[in-house]
Computed example of a mutant assay.
Amino acid sequence: MPIEILALAATGALLLTLTLIQGTRNVLVLGLPTAAGNQHDIAPWNGANDRLNRAIRNLIEAIAIFAPIALTVQVLNLGNDTSALGAEIFLIARVVHALVYIAGIPWVRTLAWFAGVAGIVMVASALIV
């Protein structure tokens, strides 16, 4: 399997994992009836709980950018060493980003975000022929 597609699948697995953690947290903290409801009348999350929610939203945004680029590179069979390395950098950066975002480590989070963007650019460079 091409590394660009493997990185995309692994990023999806990361999103699924974080979402399962979020859902489990909701049930444990709010109780099943509230967690299963619309959650309109709950207090805003704070601390690590809020950062988890924001890390998930940020990851969704990153996947929305990375996925079409990685898929296009593969459909057009343009993958190369740079795009493969970029996909690896993207995946590692997104794992680090999620962990340090939830932990509340701001500067490392920002560096991981920039590394993820650099990985996307590296994958996209395969499209510039």
Rank of each mutant, 00 (worst) to 15 (best):
M1S: 13
M1Y: 09
M1V: 14
M1F: 12
I3V: 07
I5C: 03
A7I: 15
A7C: 04
L8A: 13
A9C: 09
A10W: 09
G12L: 15
L14H: 06
L14F: 05
L20I: 10
I21G: 04
I21N: 00
G23K: 14
G23H: 11
T24H: 03
N26M: 02
V29L: 07
L30S: 03
L32F: 13
L32P: 03
A35E: 00
A36H: 11
G37V: 06
G37W: 00
H40R: 14
H40K: 12
H40F: 11
D41P: 11
D41V: 15
I42F: 05
I42T: 11
A43I: 13
N46W: 11
N46R: 15
G47H: 09
G47V: 12
A48L: 05
D50V: 13
D50I: 14
R51Y: 09
L52V: 07
R54F: 11
A55T: 04
N58P: 07
A62H: 09
A62N: 08
I65R: 00
A67L: 09
A70F: 06
A70Q: 10
T72Q: 07
T72G: 08
V73T: 15
V73H: 14
V73W: 15
V73S: 12
V73A: 10
Q74R: 04
Q74S: 07
L76H: 03
L76C: 03
T82P: 04
S83W: 08
A84T: 13
G86T: 07
E88I: 15
E88Y: 03
I89L: 14
F90M: 06
L91N: 03
L91G: 06
I92Y: 05
I92A: 15
A93M: 12
R94T: 14
V95Y: 06
H97E: 06
A98G: 14
I102P: 09
A103D: 04
P106N: 11
P106Q: 13
R109C: 08
T110A: 08
F114S: 04
A115L: 13
G116T: 08
G116A: 08
V117M: 05
A118P: 00
V121T: 11
V121I: 08
V123M: 04
A124M: 02
A126E: 06
V129M: 12
